[in-house]
Amino acid sequence: MSGTDLLELSGLVAGYGRIVALHGVSLTVRAGEVVCLIGRNGAGKSTLLKTVAGLVRPTGGRVLLRGQDISGRPVPWRTRAGVALVPEGRRVFAPMSVHDNLLLGGYGRARKAIAAGLADTYDRFPRLAERRGQPAGTLSGGEQQMLAIGRALMSAPSVILLDEPSLGLAPRIVAEVGDIITGLAGAEAGVLLVEQDAAVAFRLADRGYLLDRGHIITAGPTATLRDDARVRSAYLGAHPAPGKQHH
């Protein structure tokens, strides 16, 4: 069951120079839930995550974290406040060890908090514990994804932003990473998941939003979205049965 609102986007407008990528987007992520954002390439999904993380500054609307407007706050402030981005493509620091990658995720925290974060991360990801001294670039794709998630968790976030976590992973590893993602949401944490594979997103998420050319087209529980004719035809490779076409 979902709890209090952690993240709220209200009429968000953002883009790059004269190119507007998001047109008045509104959505909510609550504690205890995984929320997915689906859409085609170029729909504005990654821009939305970057705007929440502070990498892109909005030109309209608001980003609220636990009811506080953080729209103008810089990235380090947002990280300390509880926002963590796991970027597309993992982006681990390949020459550095697993351990040092994790330490970077806890940068700026107290020594005791970092030690607790490391213990929790190694407990959550035993394979990372086994490979703590290895260069991150020698890990498999799935292990690098675990490392990217673990590095984000080192900042003790309440809002976890995941950008295409299944990209480039074998189906078996996608299922394993999916189990990790569903375990991230808790009493004080929620997940906003951007995922190109709608079927994967719907398996993991409680609710979802469909983004098309910077606009939210529809939203609701994932079971409802899965049955939406527009979603089925465009993202799930299915079509309405004869006599059930939607006009």
Results as ranks from 00 to 15, higher is better:
Arg127Trp: 06
Leu65Ile: 02
Pro74Tyr: 09
Ala156Pro: 02
Gln145His: 01
Ser71Ile: 06
Ala187Val: 04
Pro240Leu: 00
Arg30Glu: 01
Val75Pro: 07
Leu128Arg: 13
Glu143Met: 07
Leu27Arg: 04
Val35Pro: 14
Arg90Met: 03
Ile149Ser: 11
Ser46Ile: 07
Pro240Ile: 02
Tyr235Met: 15
Thr121Asp: 12
Leu22Val: 10
Leu139Ser: 03
Leu22His: 14
Gly141Phe: 01
Val25Tyr: 10
Pro126His: 14
Glu188Tyr: 10
Val159Tyr: 09
Leu225Phe: 11
Thr47Trp: 08
Gly150Ala: 14
Arg90Pro: 04
Pro171Phe: 08
Glu33Ala: 05
Gly117Lys: 13
Arg230Asp: 00
Glu8Thr: 06
Ser166Thr: 07
Gly237Ser: 02
Arg91Pro: 02
Thr28Met: 07
Thr79Pro: 02
Met96Lys: 06
Thr138Asn: 09
Ala116Val: 00
Leu147Met: 00
Ala53Leu: 12
Gln68Cys: 08
Met96Glu: 14
Ala119Thr: 02
Tyr107Lys: 15
Lys112Trp: 10
Arg78Ile: 10
Leu128Asp: 05
Leu162Gly: 02
Thr121Gln: 12
Ile217Lys: 13
Asp123Asn: 14
Val159Gly: 09
Leu12Glu: 04
Val177Gly: 13
Ala241Ser: 15
Gln145Tyr: 04
Glu164Ile: 03
Glu188Gln: 15
Arg132Val: 01
Ser140Gln: 11
Met154Arg: 13
Arg230Lys: 11
Gly15Thr: 06
Glu88Cys: 01
Asp5His: 04
Arg172Met: 11
Ala187Gly: 05
Leu64Pro: 03
Ile160Thr: 04
Arg78Phe: 09
Met1Gly: 15
Ala223His: 15
Leu193Tyr: 01
Ile216Asn: 14
Ala152Asp: 02
Ala148Met: 05
Thr138His: 09
Leu6Gly: 01
Ala170Lys: 14
Val98Asp: 14
Leu49Gly: 05
Val63Ile: 12
Leu55Phe: 15
Val177Gln: 15
Val52Ser: 05
Ala31Trp: 08
Ala219Lys: 14
Val194Met: 10
Leu9Val: 04
Gly89Tyr: 03
Ser46Met: 04
Ala185Cys: 06
Val75Arg: 11
Val86Cys: 07
Ser71Asp: 06
Ile216Lys: 10
Val191Ser: 04
Ala219Pro: 13
Thr222Gln: 06
Val159Asn: 10
Asp123His: 15
Asp227Leu: 13
Gly150Ile: 01
Phe93Gln: 11
Val29Phe: 01
Thr222Trp: 03
Arg18Lys: 14
Ser26His: 04
Met1Tyr: 03
His215Glu: 12
Pro87Tyr: 02
Ala84Thr: 01
Tyr209Asp: 12
Ile38Lys: 10
Leu85Cys: 03
Ser46Pro: 09
Asp5Leu: 00
Ser140Asn: 12
Asp206Tyr: 01
Lys244Asp: 00
Leu167Met: 12
Gly82Glu: 06
Ile149Gly: 08
